[in-house]
């Protein structure tokens, strides 16, 4: 469902082009769980931004469910994100002036969907925060805020969910619970999950690891059961 072809991103630096990503190509099938790993400066976040339609490549293309994102303007990409994409950020990125249930409801409200509050409450229940819906982000712990963010990411039944270092600001135990939550929702709803992380142990839980270094894909290998199935 997610197809990247010869993705290249260049920035101007000192009057010369600086390539942050070079000729990155891969496919991510629907329902799969892929991790993108690499050291700091390898281009992981840039790749995430391109895949999610937050940015446009200098060359190459990204197709999400058959739609070439580079042919859309920013507002069209925003609408597409609202319909098909979910996000979980490292720093949670909850809107501080909205309560937990209001934060979860935002994607539905932006599409003008009815019953947003009810659906949001259901999802908060699913992530174990049914009784905290009326609390503001500042009143929640880091793990709780990330669970709210996860609920928000799933509220619009996205086709693909992008998680950018979702455990980066959490302790190990809490982070593990968040990943379990993501995996569970991935299994139950069939959402494609793309996880960006520098944590190899976390990446190992994915079905496939795409390794980046200096802006290029250095390896793209199945892991765990997927690797075994591939070997067989």
């Amino acid at each position: 469902m997610l197809v990247a072809r010869e993705l290249t991103k260049e920035y101007q630096s000192g009057g010369r082009p600086l390539a942050v990503l070079r000729d990155v190509s891969f496919d991510v099938p629907q329902g799969s769980f892929a991790a993108i790993v690499g050291p700091s400066g390898s281009g992981k976040t840039t790749l995430l931004g391109l895949l999610a339609g937050l940015d446009v490549p200098s060359r190459g293309s990204v197709r999400l469910d058959g739609t070439d994102l580079s042919t859309l303007d920013e507002d069209a990409r925003a609408r597409l994100r609202g319909e098909r994409v979910g996000f979980v950020f490292q720093s949670f990125q909850l809107i501080p002036t909205l309560t937990a249930v209001e934060n979860v409801a935002v994607p539905l409200e932006l599409r003008g969907e009815r019953g947003a509050a009810r659906r949001a409450a259901e999802l908060l229940e699913r992530v174990g925060l049914g009784g905290r819906g009326h609390h503001f982000p500042a009143q929640l712990s880091g793990g709780e805020q990330q669970r709210v963010a996860v609920a928000r990411a799933f509220v619009n039944r996205p086709r693909v969910l992008f998680a950018d270092e979702p455990t980066g600001n959490l302790d190990q135990a809490t982070g593990a619970r968040i990943v379990e939550l993501l995996e569970a929702l991935n299994r139950e709803d069939g959402t494609t999950l793309v996880l960006v992380t520098h944590d190899l142990a976390l990446a190992g839980r994915a079905g496939r690891v795409i390794r980046l270094a200096d802006g290029v894909v250095v390896s793209d290998t199945p892991t765990g059961a997927a690797a075994a199935a591939a070997a067989a």
Partner: peptide
């Protein structure tokens, strides 16, 4: 600015 960036990620158009 941060809130607006998040809203844009969540699907808000510039007009919204």
């Amino acid at each position: 600015l941060d809130t607006v960036a998040v809203l844009r990620c969540l699907g808000a158009t510039s007009r919204q």
